[in-house]
Design a protein around this nucleic acid. Structure first.
Lengths: 191, 191, 191, 191
DNA sequence: TATGAATGAGCGTTCATTCAT
DNA sequence: TATGAATGAACGCTCATTCAT
């Protein structure tokens, strides 16, 4: 019997792609990826039929990792603010620890080959957050703003904070705090 | 004397590039651009020696247009808040009216061929905004946050708002207002 | 395992290049070469990374063939004169039988992309001739002239003879003899 | 009335072409030549309809200059040997003083665009030499060898000597003398 | 005639993908 | 399944030549 597609190899490709795309952009050659993954050029295509498909898969994978990181240790019983704070902190920390992943994510979001399925799949792991916000709005802790607004400003501000921290790591605390305060101030119920 | 290099043709190329890059990404072929501009493939290279150079030039051009739009009618005598509001409104309006330009801008910012000169030139027209913020901080109207934080969150939130408005134009007003409130709430001096 | 880079294909490319360069000059397109070799345009570049590299490789190859031809049946025990005669005869014969190779050789020698390594490698197989001359000078059979003089006049006269024979094949014998006599008369020890 | 084609400009182009071709080979761009000549790109084509034509014209020009140099001070009354010596000396001197011209000459001779007319025109100014040899053969001073043999070996040996002198100028005298002796020894009547 | 921008065929090379092994 | 040579369309760019000025 022949060897079977190995999850290890698939991951090796995904890791290699992350690295290569982060360094050289999405236009990097697939041969650079297979080389970095230590496999033959053709082998890449037994795991991903197309370069576009690889990028889509990579996007999902990164989103999944990110969701994992964000939800680990999620304090389900705490206040809305402290749960949101947790999400914020985890996201920023993940981005700072995984700059390549985050860089690829930003490139993919500007890319024109991302499928609807991938977009859907990419946001799926974040339903719990969505529910939390929904709930908080029902309880009048959070303003009645369209939910996409809250989610997207969260991401936008967190990404901005990450970039700022990378540029000026000494002010990391200032940026993290000010970013979260801006977010929370913008969505919490006004007295 | 021979025909002289025409500013019109240069602009036609820049416009065509904007369109083509917006539709197909920065990896679009230069031949697509020359075709869209109605010129021969080789002609593009009498105006821009290199594709990279063209992208750099396009970036500067767009930034300049944007600055023009943002500073037009700038109410120099009004309150800080209303001046910032003006900037915010003009930026969002420009982005919504010029989606291709804005799309290209975002792609270029993730691209790895932008030169230091271009970056510098691109931010030059925005000094007045920087000065205004500086001034507002000195007067304790705005918190003493690192200036890059204020600038970048402004851009990040405005970009987010534009995207949201495009997805759901009926809520345009909600997004614009909520976005600005989030920004202002996050930077104004607390009583 | 995949198909392995074949020596046959490499040789096919080299042969095709010889033909094409001989007919159209070194400025001939690589696509003409791949077509003549019966391979795809891209395939050429899996064997030679660059056109320049191909020309360099071709130069070495031809020099090697030439050396082979010249040294085959080399009468190591005969007189200096008869050994030189052998070299002369073999060279002229090789050139007349392989006009394309010889034509390419001449073009490459006037070309500006030949590397130092190639030059060195190209002259390596001819050391035995050099030694023979050295030896003959020590024995006062050949005048004490700078060795490059002897080598280069040999080549120059032989090339001239080949050209003359091609123009006027009936006089082949006259040219060959007169050419060698000129060479030998010019370097032998005077009584 | 419009300006008329100037001989000066024609010469400027020819000089520039000599320089540029010598440095970069015959494949150098015509734009490089017009730049070096201080004229516009298009102007070159009012003097030479085609690049090929320019090369052909340059060939003739150089051959003419060479003939001039060789025949200047030609000692019509001296012995055959001393007249041939004069030709030899003048040729070698011209080549050493005009390395660019000589380099171009060699490239053109290997080039495939030289017309029959150019070849004919190029050899025309050398008839006097041809006649001298003819005469010398009739007088049994020079062997009854085919005339092209004598002419071409003269050129081949002189070119070789020039190259050798360039590589090792200290031995200039040795090379010049040995070269001429080889030539003369190869063609003079044997006692 | 002189200019130099305009032209577009052509070039060397890359690269996603295929396929013989 | 894994390999990597083979493929050929596509790309960015060059350059001899044309032509409006």
């Amino acid at each position: 019997m022949a060897r079977i597609k190995s999850q290890d190899k698939r991951n090796a490709i995904l890791d290699a792609a992350t690295q290569v795309f982060a360094e050289r952009g999405l236009s990097a050659a697939t041969s650079a990826i297979s080389a970095a993954a230590g496999i033959a050029e053709g082998t890449l295509f037994t795991y991903f039929t197309t370069k576009d498909q690889l990028v889509n898969a990579l996007y999902r994978e990164i989103k999944l990792e990110l969701a994992d990181a964000m939800m680990s240790g999620f304090p389900r019983k705490n206040s809305v603010r402290s749960r949101l704070q947790h999400i914020w902190d985890q996201y920023v920390e993940w981005g700072l620890k995984n700059p390549m992943q985050q860089g690829v994510l930003q490139q993919v979001l500007v890319w024109n080959g991302l499928t609807q399925e991938s977009k859907k799949a990419g946001s799926a792991p974040f339903v719990e957050i969505e529910r939390m916000i929904e709930e908080a709005q029902r309880q009048h802790i959070v303003q009645d703003l369209p939910r996409p607004f809250i989610q997207m400003t969260l991401v936008a501000l967190a990404d901005t904070v990450m970039e700022l921290v990378r540029q000026d790591p000494k002010r990391a605390e200032i940026y993290r705090t000010a970013g979260f305060e801006m977010l929370w101030g913008g969505i919490q119920r006004k007295r």
